[in-house]
């Protein structure tokens, strides 16, 4: 089984910058700590270069260091979020911090795909809508609580508005049911083997040792 995502309720941290790359989300130096899915301090290292000064003291102005967003479950951000490196630790760190939904006008594609493998939901909305959500989100907890619901594909805002979004049906089903893609694919074991046999016949040069 993979991790599910059905809905999330909590504060939505506004971080409205464009082109936040995965080096920024998951700084390279933090990968010195080795583990199958990153080290043990994933939550601590999220946005480390923005959250701490050079002596590792928290910078109080950074949104995730503010009391009202320390337990944020949702991130509101700018276009091209998660661009750059394929490092899946960017998603692992967000999840470890407690953020399971990122709302942006667009995403780096590898980051976008990585979300679905880890029970995280990337939602695409236009910038104006996100600006509106960010204004509502500004007080943070306990006043400004959002619910993102994948079943109904809606966001319920603190003021009572309902904002719809769309996730590709194939991805939505996978997240709602926590489907394990590897097991699903292995149900097609014979089909894959037949394909490999045919491919070796039609393109023998590509599979010299198969």
């Amino acid at each position: 089984m993979s991790e599910k995502f059905v809905s999330v309720t909590g504060a939505a941290a506004p971080l409205l910058r464009a082109n936040i790359d995965t080096d920024t989300i998951s700084p390279t130096r933090t990968e010195k700590e080795f583990g199958e899915k990153g080290g043990s301090n994933l939550a601590q290292f999220l946005f480390a270069n923005w959250r701490y000064d050079e002596n590792d003291n928290p910078l109080p102005d950074f949104v995730l260091n503010r009391t009202s967003f320390k337990s944020a479950k949702i991130l509101l951000t700018g276009p091209n979020f998660g661009c750059g490196s394929s490092r899946e630790s960017a998603v692992w760190m967000l999840k470890a911090f407690g953020i399971s939904c990122v709302i942006a006008p667009s995403f780096g594609e590898i980051f976008y795909n990585n979300c679905f493998k880890n029970g995280a939901l990337p939602v695409i909305l236009d910038e104006a809508t996100i600006d509106g959500l960010a204004k509502e989100a500004e007080p943070g907890e306990p006043e400004a609580i959002f619910t993102v619901d994948l079943e109904s594909q809606t966001i319920a805002t603190p003021s009572g508005k309902t904002v719809p979004f769309t996730i590709p049906a194939f991805r939505r089903q996978g997240l709602l049911e926590g489907l394990d893609e590897i097991s699903l694919t292995l149900q097609r074991d014979a089909e894959i083997s037949e394909f490999a046999t045919r491919a070796k016949q039609s393109r023998p040069w590509a599979y010299p040792n198969s």
């Binding site: 899915k37 394929s86 899946e88 998603v91 590898i110 795909n113 990585n114 493998k117 880890n118 590709p168 194939f170 893609e181 590897i182 694919t185 292995l186 894959i192 490999a196």
Partner: peptide, 20 residues
């Protein structure tokens, strides 16, 4: 193209990848 680590496990196990 570049893939994530979970996608790489899928490739290792199945020699395929689910892509849009």
């Amino acid at each position: 193209w570049g893939i994530g680590q979970s996608e790489a496990v899928h490739v290792m196990a199945t020699q395929t990848s689910v892509q849009r």
